[in-house]
Simulated scan of single mutants.
Amino acid sequence: MQHAVAELFSGDREALTTSAAAAAGQPVTLPEQVVLMGHSAGGDLVIGAGADMVTGGWGARLVGVILLDGYTADPRQFTQNVKTIPLATPVLLIGAPPSYYNQLGATSSALVAARPGTLTGLQLKGGTHVDGMQGGNPLTQFAEYLVAGFPKPQNTAAVGQLSADWINDMFGGDAVPGTPGQTVQIQTAHGTATGVHTARTADDTVTAGMSYWSLSPTSSPGL
């Protein structure tokens, strides 16, 4: 699947343009650059697709990747895919504290392992796996909340604001602000959300607030 996604952005992008035009109901001209974003296992998909874009020779079109509480079944392969994407291309995570649904923070740990000393994302205090999963059928979403936890309104809003800000920075060629280990306050219409930029400590654990997780977590399915 990651190969298929990557191929959509190669060459003249005929299939992607046709799909976009059908969705818009009119002819469209696609921008040359793209930011890939994925939630949960979708984060693993977009990292793989981004790596395939680079190895395929059209990685210059990729200006950033954002993961929303990403999940990976294979942290080692995930780390290798991240390393394939040039350091100049931001790869950032907006995550919740380690849980069953994000494989105990495996993607955050893998990002820090692949890009030590650089900004790799932020963990929302009191966050849930579905902070960034909005829309669709309300009954389905309610069921997801029952399973993964009801998100705080300020955290849901913060995911949207941070994603938009980071995407604008990526397309603008600007550095995404933040320092590993830094605590930040995100003001939203629903209150203030608190996040901590992830950082590696001397004992090779990844820290964000009061949460810690191993670089080699046990495997568990994503939502």
Rank of each mutant, 00 (worst) to 15 (best):
V5H: 02
G11S: 08
G11M: 03
E14V: 09
A15W: 03
L16D: 00
L16M: 03
L16T: 03
L16I: 01
T18Y: 11
A22L: 12
G25K: 04
Q26M: 14
P27V: 08
P27M: 11
T29F: 05
Q33A: 10
M37P: 02
S40K: 01
A41T: 10
G43F: 04
G48A: 01
G48C: 06
A51H: 00
D52K: 13
M53H: 02
M53K: 01
G56F: 05
G59N: 07
V63P: 00
V63S: 05
V65N: 10
L67Q: 13
D69I: 07
Y71C: 07
T72H: 00
T72N: 04
A73S: 10
A73N: 11
R76P: 05
T79S: 12
T79G: 11
N81Y: 07
K83Y: 13
I85W: 04
I85Q: 03
L93V: 09
L93K: 05
L93T: 08
I94S: 08
P98I: 02
S108I: 12
A110P: 00
A110Q: 01
A110Y: 04
L119V: 03
T120N: 06
T120D: 00
Q123E: 07
K125H: 12
G126H: 03
D131I: 11
G136D: 08
G136K: 10
P138I: 11
L139V: 09
Q141D: 11
A143F: 13
A143R: 06
L146T: 07
P151A: 05
V159E: 06
S163H: 10
S163R: 06
I167W: 11
I167D: 07
I167E: 12
N168E: 13
N168R: 15
D169F: 11
D169M: 10
G172C: 07
D174N: 15
A175Q: 15
P180Y: 01
T183A: 15
Q185L: 15
A189L: 15
H190V: 09
A193M: 08
T194F: 05
R200M: 05
A202L: 10
D203C: 04
A208V: 01
M210S: 15
S211A: 15
Y212Q: 15
Y212V: 13
W213D: 15
S214L: 11
S214A: 15
S216H: 14
G222R: 05
